[in-house]
Design a protein around this nucleic acid. Structure first.
Lengths: 144, 144
DNA sequence: TGCGATTAGATTGTACACAATTAAATTGAA
DNA sequence: TTCAATTTAATTGTGTACAATCTAATCGCA
């Protein structure tokens, strides 16, 4: 009798743990690809939104990235110091901080093109499996 | 012509981003369940290994948790200060730090039993989908 | 109109996470 | 045997994450 009731506490029986471990591992694999762009992973996903939107508030960024101002403020100050974005208060509503892509930030987009291509080499999943994984994760994400 | 070549840089087309976002969100949902145990998520998964193994080296912990000593050393010192584990050098090989579960740490196991049960209420996936997700993540994890 | 409630972002404090380096113990081949 | 290479943790430095709190701006209703 080896107390099977504790089985639910085994690392191997958790769904969240592989999620957490895989996520960290992939972020870790992004880093060498991002080094030439002088970006961390968090800065990179922030730039992805900027490349699409050109100009957004911190609130909008937070909603897209699932990050709060406590995380974004230092990230955006860093991106500003690198010259990739500017931070200015909105004239309409001084509470809103407008984050705007600079020319230098826009130029980075071309260099970034090879990042997803190179990364896919690090993820050993068939296209079908990748698709299934993507759909399940999206389903979870939108359920929050 | 809207430069479809940049589509691979859209947040919505990334596999890694939902992985990263879902992982963070679930860890965030663990926290209120772990507060009564005075554990963070990282401390919790560390305790999961301890509950199974009773005594392990930092190296073994790192391999199971995909964490290095830079992360584990402070976590283990914290768990030691809470009285859940002890840290002693191995007699055989002084390089190895033996992390050992205390009675107090063992006692915590019973309190922890309800954590996975309560958490499953936060994850809106059918058993089939959860199983599929688990298998895919495990496949990825073992491919690293 | 005035003021309490709300909102957006910044700040503070705690806790990871990881690369790079350091230090001590052990190993192993000349 | 000895000492260079390896191994294990700890340390240092940077960068997130997030809860809680704070501040300033705006909103909305009595």
């Amino acid at each position: 009798m080896d107390d099977a009731k504790y089985d639910i506490l085994k690392l191997d029986n958790q769904l969240c743990f592989p999620l957490y471990a895989v996520s960290k591992e992939i972020v870790r694999r992004y880093q060498p690809l991002l080094d030439p762009l002088d970006l961390t992973y968090t800065q990179y996903i922030t730039m992805m939104v900027m490349w699409e939107k050109k100009c957004v508030t911190v609130k909008e960024l937070g909603e897209k990235l699932y990050l709060d101002s406590g995380t974004l403020t230092p990230v955006l100050k860093k991106l500003e110091s690198k010259g990739y974005v500017t931070r200015t208060r909105s004239k309409d509503d001084e509470r809103n901080l407008m984050v705007t892509l600079t020319d230098s930030g826009e130029a980075l987009k071309d260099e970034a093109l090879e990042v997803p291509l190179k990364l896919s080499g690090c993820v050993n999943l068939s296209p079908d499996d990748a698709k299934t994984l993507y759909v399940l994760l999206k389903k979870l994400l939108t359920s929050f």
